[in-house]
């Protein structure tokens, strides 16, 4: 057993913990919270509601693997929603144009933050903290009051449901209802797939791990450390743009308070998904499970009748704390075993 633990890579070890935790949690939900969790649609609803979070978490996992951090993604999401909403409803814009705006905003944040962090060596936390405040502030400057978007093409897109074959269930009246997912879920799964391939199968992807694991060694191994960090932040910014648009597509409105605390949930998902804060260890599949675990817990909390909002915050923080300590302890133990 010990030998097995030793030979497992850090990434796989933490990934295993995550998946086990998720499965146990979902089983508990089915046992204690009744049949609701057995319906496929319950699971797909979790996906629908968290597609944006999945995308944001992918970006965060990437920067965290590289040994950095980004807490501006929630702010960027709000800014993207608001800008797109204003563009669609007040300037008669097209859906395509709004997608471009979202990408542009993400790209701009990624570029600027990446430059400051990678090439000027400024602490990533400070840069992205400022980025977060800037994005939140700009959101209210663009438009103060929340409103629902009424652009027809956009609403049609928002209402599009993609039927998942063979996964339906019978409702109360006995009619068969197909299970469905929204477009955002497809985008999110695509992002997960692309990021998985990028991190696992490409030269650049492995460079992220090397830089996060040990920047000095990575330099000696012939990797351009600064460029690698820059690319990580650039991709994270773009993903925040995409995630912002998916969020916008789900809620269909612009508001300054949108996605508040999303950066926190994204970081928590990444950590629960087995990404190490210290860098160099992490897995996109784990991140996906991290998001699912997090939202399952939220569902459990709300269906257990603990409706008060504070329970969610406390459970997430408790989970985060638990996983941080697990990481710290597991790594310390492994280090000791290697020394012997």
């Amino acid at each position: 057993m010990k030998k097995k633990l030793m030979n497992m890579s850090d990434t796989n070890l933490l990934l295993t913990i995550t998946i086990v935790v998720f499965v146990v949690m979902y089983l508990c939900a089915i046992i204690f919270e009744g049949k609701g969790f057995l319906k496929p649609q319950t699971f797909f609803n979790i996906l629908n509601a968290n597609a944006a979070l999945i995308i944001l978490s992918c970006g965060l996992s990437l920067v965290m693997i590289t040994g950095s951090i980004d807490i501006s993604v929630g702010g960027i999401t709000a800014l993207v929603s608001m800008c797109c909403a204003v563009y669609l409803d007040y300037h008669g814009g097209s859906v395509f144009g709004s997608v471009m705006i979202a990408l542009g905003i993400g790209l701009a944040f990624g570029l600027f933050q990446g430059l400051l962090i990678a090439y000027l060596d400024i602490q990533p936390f400070i840069v992205t903290l400022a980025g977060m405040f800037f994005a939140r502030g700009m959101t209210t400057i663009v438009h103060t009051n929340p409103f629902n978007v009424e652009n027809e093409a956009f609403v049609a897109l928002k209402e599009t449901r993609i039927i998942v074959p063979g996964m339906g269930s019978y409702n109360k009246n006995g009619t068969y209802v197909n299970a469905y997912v929204e477009i955002g879920v497809i985008v999110a799964l695509l992002v997960v797939a692309i990021m998985f391939v990028l991190l696992r199968k490409t030269r650049q992807g492995r460079a992220f791990y090397a830089v996060g694991g040990n920047g000095q060694s990575a330099l000696m191994l012939g990797i351009n450390v600064k460029r690698t960090k820059f690319i990580a932040h650039l991709i994270c910014g773009i993903l925040a743009g995409i995630g912002g648009y998916v969020y916008f597509l789900h809620v269909g409105s612009g508001a300054a308070s949108h996605a508040s605390g999303a950066e926190m949930n994204a970081i928590a998902s990444s950590i629960i998904g087995g990404t190490m804060l210290t860098g160099g260890v992490g897995n996109i599949i784990g991140t996906l499970f991290g998001v699912l675990s997090l939202s399952t817990i939220q569902n459990i909390v709300s269906s257990a009748g603990l409706d008060q909002a504070w329970w969610t915050g406390i459970t997430i923080a408790a989970m985060l704390c638990l996983f941080l300590v697990i990481q710290s302890v597991v790594m310390a133990r492994k280090k000791k075993m290697t020394k012997k």
Partner: peptide, 27 residues
């Protein structure tokens, strides 16, 4: 080969042998 080990301990042995000197985009 430096005195202090300048490899990445979070990567596999094979990767440490090849990283930073591959030409192809995909590994």
């Amino acid at each position: 080969v430096y005195q202090e080990i300048t490899l990445c301990s979070n990567l596999s042995v094979a990767e440490n042998i090849f990283i930073g000197r591959e030409k192809s985009f995909f590994t």
